[in-house]
Design a protein around this nucleic acid. Structure first.
Length: 655
RNA sequence: GCGCCCGUAGCUCAGUUGGAUAGAGCGUCUGGCUACGAACCAGAAGGUCGGAAGUUCGAAUCUUUCCGGGCGCACCA
């Protein structure tokens, strides 16, 4: 299905019913209420429940049940509705006309989704380019990528940015490791890149230099010097900084590509500095008096933003340093400049060059300091989502406060911290990884990871392990298939499993990552959902293998036949459920909660698995019923594949 | 100390703007493969939604308070 188009039959009927009720209530009671609809508690109650009588009860001072009765009696026929009933204390339950509904689905009422005007910018991933990506980074990227897919599915124009902090402390630390600890030259470091897993080498080195600082506090001088030279941009150390960061970015892109994640543009901090983005933002902030030069106290000599601007108090200790007393700008300061640029408010732009082009023609652009080949227009977003973990909400508040203080109220409101809780490790998994735990930690539900200490699950290790696991199963179930093909299937399963475990939790749930759980492909998992789609595909293929063509469903299932076949609950519930994919995605976008799509996909897969076990499709003797079964199978398969696509999960041919 | 988040079945989690008898997965127990391949299906057991008070026709959901846990509150990012 094309982006922005999907079945909206349910949606259309729902709107029609709401409009009919609103019109009747206005005519009868002269009151204008927003007609809410709910899903009935039990499917046997019908397809829609309207609590409107409760809403009116207060105004009319009448029993809800009596009002409901008046409405049901007076409203008359609504197209597509078979019956209305009063239930409970005053619910109005609506039963749809199943025949009409089925025929509408069969005819394919695809309507354009309600896209928001303007471009939406989503920034995600944003990993310090100094070490391998780990499981926590994956949650960020998978959440961001899925949200992007959902936004696009709803017809929105989306730009994906991945900010690269290539001049920060973390990169500097690895350079310190190479230069001062290991006494390596730029050429030697370059030599390492060609070798295996440069990001793993840096992962170890970063942990090593971090602990070295602890034992040798004087080594902090190395960091200061390195940081300074990287910011200046000249000399061997600065060059090494670029070499390391560029190589690690390449590693990250490769890792994310394995999960189907990509970007449109990589704005880099080095360009923010060299193109004087900060200087411009600084002038604006000073001019609008959003920040001031602190004359006394612990922040003396710093440019600070008063705490009152971002939820703190007027006390000086609550204010946030934007420019240090030595004149250098903090990360938040640069982030304010970056955020201004995202909205097109800075009055400056980057130059760009193509960093790489994938086989499908997709290009990733990266910021650069010199004018180059014609690039698309980046930035100028109408709305911005920053996918950043919840521990940084304080800093995000400061950034938003910056926009507000500059008078950009509207943009401040559209500057959204798409936050999520961290990924920690289950104690059991820590033990497996050889991480020593205190007795106290063993009792906790989870243990926080630490990049500085080199503790954590590296993304590529995890993906490798998942593929290995899937491969064993695929090989034993499909020994006759070619090896290269089996490998692809194993990769799809591994990706599906990983993306699903990261998506099934709501954003503000801390994930206690557990190897055993992630490697389990049963129950509420990606492979379970994939399996349902694979089985549907197999049924359809089986028919083909027998040399039959699928029936012409339009002809085989006219109105009466459709109504007859959908009279039973099993078929009707599956069809209804499958037709709500678009609603699930829209709801997910509206609430900013990708897990809703994952849960919907699982629910749908469950419905189909039940259907699959209960009704043999291929051998059905009744012609009309067989046509319905085949059509439902095809429809289910299409809807599930579409939904999984939004989750970034592919459906293999077999499993 | 201040701010944000979380306490729902043995475990891990869902629960739409307050709505009908609080739901899944895992685990446990019982059944189901001559295959549209069981990475599956059916069934059972399992809950004073952390405690208390309040708001109202109605609260897991909103308010207050207490208890228990997590994360922030750098001239790091």
């Amino acid at each position: 299905m094309r982006d922005g188009y999907y079945d909206k039959v349910f949606h259309v009927l729902e709107s029609r019913i709401q409009a009919a009720f609103a019109a009747f209530v206005k005519a009868r009671y002269g009151s204008e209420v927003a007609v809410a609809t709910e899903q009935p508690k039990q499917s046997s109650f019908g397809e829609l429940a309207l609590p409107i009588a409760f809403q009116l009860a207060r105004q009319l001072k009448k029993a809800p049940k009596a009002i409901a009765a008046e409405i049901v009696e007076g409203i008359g026929a609504v197209e597509g509705v078979a019956a209305m009933e009063i239930a409970g204390n005053g619910y109005i339950n609506v039963r749809l006309d199943r025949g009409v509904y089925g025929r509408l689905l069969l005819g394919g009422v695809a309507q354009a989704a309600a896209a928001k005007p303007g471009k939406i910018i989503v920034e995600h991933t944003n990993i310090n380019p100094n070490k391998a990506a780990h499981i926590g980074h994956l949650r960020n990227s998978v959440l961001g990528d899925t949200f992007v897919r959902a936004l696009r599915a709803c017809g929105n124009t989306v730009e994906v940015q991945n900010y690269i902090d290539n001049t920060g402390v973390q990169v500097a630390d690895v350079v310190v490791g190479f230069h001062f600890l290991e006494k390596k030259s730029v050429t030697e470091v370059r030599g390492l890149i060609g070798g295996a897993r440069f990001d793993y080498v840096c992962w170890e080195l970063y942990a090593r230099i971090s602990s070295y600082y602890k034992d040798h506090p004087e080594a902090i001088e190395w960091r200061k010097r390195t940081l300074h030279e990287i910011e200046e941009g000249h000399g061997e150390i600065a060059e090494m900084g670029h070499v390391v960061a560029d190589a690690i970015v390449e590693c990250h892109l490769k890792t994310m590509r394995r999960l189907g994640i990509t970007y449109d543009v990589l704005p880099r901090e080095s360009e923010i500095l060299h193109l004087k983005f900060w200087a411009t933002a600084f002038e604006q902030l000073k001019e609008r008096k959003a920040i001031y030069l602190e004359a006394e106290g612990k922040n003396k000599g710093c440019w600070v933003m008063p705490g009152a601007h971002f939820g703190g108090s007027e006390e000086a200790e609550d204010s946030k340093v934007i420019v240090r007393s030595n004149g250098t700008v903090t990360y938040v300061g640069k982030d304010i400049a970056y955020q201004l640029w995202k909205f097109g408010l800075l009055g400056k732009d980057f130059y760009y060059r193509v960093l790489k082009t994938y086989e499908d023609g997709h290009r990733i652009w990266v910021s650069t300091t010199a004018p180059g080949d014609g690039s698309p227009a980046f930035g100028h977003g109408a709305e911005v989502f920053n996918v950043i973990d919840s521990r940084q909400s304080y800093l995000q508040d400061v950034v938003v406060a910056g926009l507000q203080q500059l008078g950009y109220r509207e943009q401040a409101d559209k500057s959204i911290h798409f936050s999520y809780e961290m990924v920690a490790l289950s104690p059991r998994t820590c033990v497996e990884l050889g991480i020593e735990l205190s007795e106290e930690d063993k009792q906790r539900p989870y243990v926080e990871v630490s990049g500085r200490k080199g503790l954590g699950v590296k993304a590529d290790d995890l993906i490798d392990k998942l593929i290995e696991n899937a491969q064993r199963e695929v090989d034993s179930r499909n020994p006759e298939r070619p090896e290269a093909e089996r490998r692809k299937v194993a990769e799809a399963i591994a990706t599906g499993a990983l993306r699903y475990v990261l998506l099934k939790f709501t954003r503000n749930t801390v994930i206690a990552f557990d190897f055993q759980e992630a490697l389990s492909f049963t129950g509420e998992s990606g492979p379970y959902v994939q399996y349902a789609a694979v089985r549907a595909g197999k049924i359809l293929r089986k028919v083909e293998e027998r040399g039959e063509a699928l029936p012409d469903f339009e002809r085989a299932l006219p109105d009466e036949a459709m109504a007859r076949q959908l009279a039973g609950e099993d078929f009707w519930q599956l069809l209804l459920s499958a037709s709500k994919a678009g609603s699930a995605i829209e709801r997910s976008v509206a609430s900013g909660e990708p897990s809703h799509i994952a849960r919907y996909a699982f629910q749908l897969a469950q419905d189909f698995s039940n259907f699959y076990a209960k009704y043999p499709v291929v051998d059905e003797q009744d012609e009309e019923k067989r046509a319905l079964l085949l059509w439902m199978t095809q429809y289910f398969r299409r809807q599930l594949e579409y939904t999984l696509g939004v989750l970034g999960i592919a459906v293999p041919e077999y499993m």
